[in-house]
Simulated assay, not measured.
Amino acid sequence: MKNFSKYSVLALASALFFSCGNAQKEKVEAATIGPAAVATDSLSKAAAQLGKIEFEESAFDFGQIKEGAEVKHTFVLKNTGDAPVILSKVNASCGCTQPEFSKSPILPGGTSDIRVTFKSEGQVGKQQKIITVQSNASNSMTTVQLKGEVLAK
């Protein structure tokens, strides 16, 4: 009977020792996972708080023009996101196409214009000019295009 009591006490002490270790381990795991979950949640909220650019039209077809003519077109974009958008750079795929844009912040729900001038001198044939827009929006790089055909003089 004494041996049984000794083993019972040893088993009980072991059970308490290991169960306390598991409880401590669960607390450590919860503390480790907790901040990561909070950080991920904060990143998700921050990502949701970005602006987003949407153009009224992704391409403008100017049809047929005679060589030497200039085509001017205005692309209108809207910020459909939750934070202001700032256009940092607007480039055209060719030196014959010049974009103009505002660097003022575009508030959520607001619009802005990108005015494009295409000079057709020396550009005979089918044309497709890509205008690349870089910004701080969730879709940080977007494009629109100007296309048509230039007929020889």
Rank of each mutant, 00 (worst) to 15 (best):
M1E: 14
M1D: 10
K2P: 00
N3I: 04
F4V: 04
S8C: 04
L10A: 15
L12C: 14
A13I: 09
A13L: 11
A13V: 13
S14G: 08
S14Y: 07
F17G: 00
F18G: 06
S19F: 12
S19T: 13
S19R: 01
S19V: 10
C20L: 14
C20I: 03
G21R: 04
N22A: 15
A23S: 07
K25N: 13
E26C: 03
K27W: 08
A30H: 14
I33V: 15
G34N: 12
P35N: 09
P35F: 09
A36T: 12
A37L: 14
V38P: 02
V38C: 07
A39S: 09
S42K: 10
L43C: 08
L43D: 15
S44N: 14
A46K: 10
A46N: 15
A47D: 09
L50N: 08
L50H: 10
L50V: 00
G51T: 05
G51K: 01
G51E: 03
K52F: 02
S58M: 07
S58L: 08
F62N: 08
I65K: 13
I65A: 05
E67K: 04
G68I: 12
E70S: 12
E70Y: 00
E70W: 02
V71H: 02
K72S: 14
H73L: 03
H73K: 03
T74L: 04
V76Q: 06
V76L: 06
K78V: 08
K78C: 05
D82F: 06
P84A: 02
I86R: 10
I86T: 15
S88G: 09
K89L: 07
V90I: 13
N91W: 15
A92F: 08
A92Y: 08
T97H: 03
S104F: 07
S104W: 00
P105E: 00
I106V: 13
P108W: 05
S112N: 01
R115M: 11
V116K: 05
V116F: 12
T117V: 14
T117C: 09
T117L: 05
K119Q: 12
E121L: 07
V124W: 04
K126E: 14
Q128Y: 04
K129V: 13
I130L: 04
S135H: 03
S135L: 00
S135Q: 04
A137Y: 00
A137R: 00
S138W: 09
V144R: 08
L146C: 01
K147V: 09
G148D: 10
L151Y: 05
K153E: 15
K153T: 14
